[in-house]
Design a protein around this nucleic acid. Structure first.
Lengths: 215, 215
DNA sequence: TTTTGTATTAACCATTTAGTTATATTATAT
DNA sequence: ATATAATATAACTAAATGGTTAATACAAAA
């Protein structure tokens, strides 16, 4: 009995990363990214985390609360990174190059996030608004000002800054979110797709700058 | 009893659009667009169609089959319309103007479709591939050829046709799919958003043509 | 060592869900 | 008219699902 107990304690100490909560969080993130809120099963998340289903409710009250936590973190993180890129202290045209290259890489390495956000935004627009309202996420004003300045300096042609921003972001996000369609329509294998996106890091900036630059 | 029967027959004849199947189809489309495959409930679809739940299984064998039928039709219709626009017999630059204006209006008036397709494509990429393989949907070759010709004629600068096509489509689809984010981030109300998209019908073509046109 | 609060589990519960069945009604063809 | 096939319903079933509970293991404080 003492023997058994000792063993148990060892085992406990070893595996006790202590942060069961964190394990749950990462497991849930994975499953929710893959299957969405409705498609995910609490049991599957528990299995993925290697713990009992009751633990999910012990740490997070309900499925919706658990999903909400993850969505909020993903959403904030995504926009935080976006804000960092947008706030880079560079002349507009260089900033566009910098932004496109880094933003594309960012969403490429977190390719579940945009689809995850778009999907949830579509099914439950309220959640977004609340997060936006709570935390004041509005980095885009910096970009708008940059654009206005560049226009008045005659560096770029007149264009509605909002249209330009949507253009740049759309050019980056779309090919990542629509990956399976692109692969099928344009006959890409995994490598072909990767090359295509790699090309885009230069091509999108070139495309945008060509369109707006004066001279 | 005769009375009752007569009434019943009248009622039947009146409402008997005959096409219960069609009613189910439209109801299911509505619910699936709104809630997705996992979020939709067979009972809700039956209620929406005003019939018994068993009828759903009578006409379509299962939830998945029903969803499949709708997805396939939406998907094909969407790409059929896209193919029509792409095949217009116009010089490239005019075709781009024509395409952007009409494609934007198309997805604006079917705004559930792109998100619906993107979401499903993400959760079940196989379904897409099968539809693509069954029906040979590849209208984009026409566009690719147009672009190559325009390049060799010196009308536009050299650019990878695939990149250009993805650019154009992304510029159209993104602001529709991401509507709730745009509205929150850029402080649009419903009218402001509508104006923004209306502006885009000209702006996107201008943006693209500015970028690629020589002279 | 005992107590106390926290972490964890297995078993359970109530509800919901897709799908079925047995039965009735209606139209159609003989 | 009558048999037959198609259409519709209400009631049901079996499985799955989110969530709960009662009982325990464990660590840390007393």
């Amino acid at each position: 009995m003492d023997n058994k107990k000792t063993f148990k304690i060892e085992e406990k100490t070893t595996k006790a990363d202590k942060d069961t909560e964190h394990r749950i969080f990462e497991a849930a993130r994975k499953i929710f990214h893959l299957k969405g809120l409705d498609g995910a099963r609490m049991q599957e998340i528990a299995d993925e985390a290697g713990i009992n289903k009751a633990m999910l409710h012990y740490y997070f009250r309900s499925k919706d609360k658990l999903f909400g936590s993850i969505f909020e973190e993903d959403f904030k993180e995504f926009f935080k990174r976006l804000a960092e890129l947008i706030s880079a202290d560079l002349p507009l045209l260089e900033k566009i190059e910098f932004f496109v290259e880094n933003y594309l890489e960012l969403i490429l390495q977190n390719s579940y996030i945009p689809a995850f956000i778009l999907s949830e935004i579509h099914h439950n627009p309220e959640r977004i608004k609340n997060i936006f309202l709570e935390k004041g996420i509005k980095a885009e004003q910096i970009f708008v000002d940059d654009i206005k300045t560049a226009i008045s300096l005659g560096i770029i042609r007149p264009i509605d800054p909002k249209q330009l921003i949507v253009n740049i972001i759309g050019l980056c996000i779309f090919p990542i979110v629509a990956k399976p369609i692109l692969c099928t329509m344009l006959s890409f294998d995994e490598e072909g797709y990767r090359n295509f996106i790699e090309e885009r890091k230069k091509e999108v900036a070139r495309f945008v700058i060509n369109s707006i630059k004066i001279n």
